[in-house]
Design a protein around this nucleic acid. Sequence first.
DNA 1: CTGATCTACAACCATCTGGTTGTTGATTAC
DNA 2: GTAATCAACAACCAGATGGTTGTAGATCAG
Lengths: 116, 116
Amino acid sequence: MVVDQLTPDQADRVFHALADRTRRDIVRRVLGGEASVSALGRQYPMSLTAVQKHVAVLELAGLVTKTRRGREQIVRADLDPVRRATALLDQFEALWRARMDRMGDLLAEPEQGATK
Amino acid sequence: MVVDQLTPDQADRVFHALADRTRRDIVRRVLGGEASVSALGRQYPMSLTAVQKHVAVLELAGLVTKTRRGREQIVRADLDPVRRATALLDQFEALWRARMDRMGDLLAEPEQGATK
DNA sequence: CTGATCTACAACCATCTGGTTGTTGATTAC
DNA sequence: GTAATCAACAACCAGATGGTTGTAGATCAG
């Protein structure tokens, strides 16, 4: 398996980070190409400090990394946690299908006599 | 397209709902088979009221539905919002690949003369 | 050197979150 | 009928969240 699971704590942070419109938009933006914190700040109708905090939340979730370049702080996206979150959701899908299979088995069983 | 997008508000609710261990566990549990609220309540080291609230959050996100059966309230999972969330994450993946393609184009270009 | 830019950080605030206890109302079991 | 079970709801609480303003440290441009 290429992408392994998120720990529960990581999942908490990743999903929480994605549970905010502004943060999802920041992720989209830096996925399309890196950006400085101040450049991001200019894109949203809120203070730069607020955007800094959003970036910090994304950073804590591992969705984004910051590296200094001169006086600017460059924000880049990391897709790994996104892939792991997707894997977690796919696991839900698998649970669902497992249940469907079990129900199919039941329906396929001879009506009266129990299987054992 | 079979699964269309989540609205930003729905995405807020779905990701927020998934940003809690107990709630993710409840989703897993009811994906494996429906359960009453009180049965769920017995599974976690917290009050029934707390579990009721978690179920309510999941319900608001559309991840789960409740239906009465006698004095019990049966909780069932709905995978649709999960699939839509997955689609949103896949869209991130697509943005990433689009950038990779653009970078590839740049590298493939003749070094000096601009493209236009 | 001086001023503008980019960032960090502290303090504050209103609201939301995740939990609690206690009360009440249906429904089921005896 | 009475008691137990299941669920809803109100009220409360500590802590997190998402925002603000203000101050201050680096770095860059003139």
